[in-house]
């Protein structure tokens, strides 16, 4: 192998040395970073800047030269509310319905996600029969496309779907799950937890396996009960992993779009419309396409996500520092 690499390196060496002579060692580092920086600027920084520019312009034209400058008008419209807790009092009521739906969704989804992931991880960490099989089963939904997940559940839950047919065969009454705002929302949360739980379970499982066995052995010698062991050993030592799971789930929860959109379309009415769906519909699926309003809404969401990420970093560093 070395015989192959050495001639290649000799070919590369000469231009590298020449470049270093011209640029100097410090600037050479920038030359190496340049391709990545160019790509990053093009596909990350530039869209962010464009998003800000769009948020300060109006009309349904996509080219910036055709879009009049409107200042903070888009933000003013979004934030124009008599009471932020009552979407009906807001100028753009659907945005605030989506915001409150997202807050409720995230609160429920993250709580259930963390609790069920933890319970599953605790069970899968025990020496149970067919442990490998069960680990695969819980992880399997993570591999599915969100749209597939949504369509499968929609097929089961629609008015004449599998669940209602089963209930009917068992002699129970049927429920129009997707027509009731409460049920549609509840099922959206459930499906989201079901689809993503495997990922967080895996992280928690890794965290559980990183806890030294001797601590448990010491607790067993002291005749500590299972609940006490969980409360005094497992939970505190798992806390850094739990924080990561919590913040990741929070960020992912705020970003939820595809599976709920494919499952309910945001309905009934706007009962399951989440904020990312609002942005998508306003900017791309509506007529006319209100790119400015959608950009402004996405900046507001980004601010929330930046806040959550800052919390994650702070908590992670605090945990790392003990």
């Amino acid at each position: 192998m070395l015989k192959l690499i050495t001639p290649v390196m000799q070919v590369v060496e000469w231009p590298m040395r020449a470049l270093q002579r011209v640029l100097g060692p410090r600037r050479l580092a920038w030359a190496f970073l340049a391709p990545n920086l160019v790509l990053f600027s093009l596909f990350a920084f530039l869209p962010v800047i464009l998003n800000f520019v769009y948020s300060a312009t109006g009309s349904d034209h996509i080219l910036l030269r055709d879009r009049p400058y409107v200042g903070a008008q888009n933000f003013a419209e979004l934030l124009n509310c008599q009471s932020y807790t009552d979407p009906n009092s807001c100028r753009i009521d659907v945005f605030w319905r989506a915001v409150w739906n997202t807050v409720t969704f995230v609160a429920l989804q993250v709580t259930f996600m963390v609790v069920f992931s933890l319970l599953t991880a605790l069970i899968l960490n025990r020496k149970i029969r067919a442990r490998g099989f069960f680990r695969a089963v819980f992880f399997f939904p993570v591999l599915l496309s969100p749209v597939v997940v949504a369509l499968v559940w929609k097929w089961m839950l629609q008015d004449q779907g599998l669940l209602n047919a089963t209930l009917q065969n068992l002699g129970f009454g049927t429920v129009n799950w997707l027509l009731s705002p409460g049920w549609a929302f509840g099922w959206s949360v459930f499906i989201s937890v079901w689809a993503h739980m495997g990922f967080y379970t895996l992280i928690l499982l890794a965290g559980l396996q990183a806890i030294p066995r001797d601590v448990y052995e010491a607790a067993a010698m002291d005749a500590a009960g299972p609940w006490r062991v969980f409360r005094r050993i497992t939970l505190p030592l798992l806390m850094p992993t739990m924080v990561v799971v919590l913040v990741l789930a929070l960020i992912k929860g705020v970003q939820t779009f595809d599976e709920v959109y494919a499952f309910t379309g945001g309905g009934p009415g706007s009962a399951t419309t989440l904020v990312i769906q609002y942005i998508y519909q306003t900017g791309f699926a509506g007529t006319p396409r209100l790119f400015g309003l959608a950009s402004a809404a996405s900046i507001l969401v980004a601010l929330v996500l930046v806040g959550l990420t800052a919390v994650q970093l702070w908590l992670t560093r605090r945990n790392a520092n003990g």
Binding site: N176, L178, G266
Partner: peptide
């Protein structure tokens, strides 16, 4: 049939 209009969101 309420499913057609009410079970959707937006202008889908």
């Amino acid at each position: 049939d309420k499913n057609v209009w009410a079970a959707q969101g937006g202008a889908t």
